Amino acid sequence: MGSRVLVTTRQEEVVGLMKATAQMIRMKELDGSFCLSLFYHSAAMDEGSVSKEFSNIGLEIVKKCKGLPLAAKSLGSLMQNKKTVHEWRAILDSKIWELKEIDTLEVS
């Protein structure tokens, strides 16, 4: 009977904007090993059979995800199409990591 909406956010102000009764559950970041496993699973790769060079780059990418599962999953999915060490390193060295906040546009 009825329905529910699940909203995930890192900004507590979003919970305050919810019109209905909001029940907030605080989640912690994923442990590094879980985040790494999620990354490789999303990349459709067997974590145990990854070469040392890919493994080192993957570990550095996951560190930049800061335990956020959506980041690890999204980047892992992106890596499905990246087959060379050069492509992986390009993701690791991307300037996008330097952004502190992404500006949003208001649509009227």
Rank of each mutant, 00 (worst) to 15 (best):
Y40D: 01
K52E: 07
F34L: 11
N81H: 00
T104C: 04
L92E: 11
L30T: 00
E47N: 11
H86N: 07
K73R: 15
K52A: 03
L78C: 05
F34Y: 06
N56K: 00
K100S: 04
L70F: 08
L68H: 12
K82I: 15
V85I: 15
N81Q: 00
I25V: 12
G32A: 12
S108C: 01
D103Q: 11
F54K: 06
D46N: 14
V7M: 07
K100T: 08
M1P: 03
D31G: 00
Q23L: 12
S51T: 10
T84D: 05
Q11Y: 13
L6P: 01
L6W: 04
S51Y: 02
E53I: 02
L68I: 12
L75K: 13
I25L: 11
S94F: 07
S77K: 08
G16F: 02
S51G: 12
A71W: 15
V50G: 06
L75R: 13
K63W: 11
E53Y: 04
C65N: 03
M24F: 05
I96M: 08
K66F: 06
S108E: 01
E29S: 15
L36I: 08
A90K: 12
K63S: 15
T21P: 04
E60P: 00
V50P: 04
D103W: 10
N56V: 00
M27W: 01
S74H: 11
L75Y: 14
D103Y: 09
R89S: 05
R26A: 12
E87C: 10
G32T: 08
L70M: 06
F34A: 09
T21V: 03
C35A: 15
F34R: 08
A90Q: 11
E106Y: 10
S51E: 07
F39E: 02
S74N: 14
E12S: 15
G67V: 06
T84A: 09
C65K: 06
D46E: 13
M79F: 11
K100N: 06
W88I: 05
L99E: 07
L75Q: 10
Y40L: 01
T21A: 04
K63M: 14
E12D: 14
I61V: 15
L17G: 08
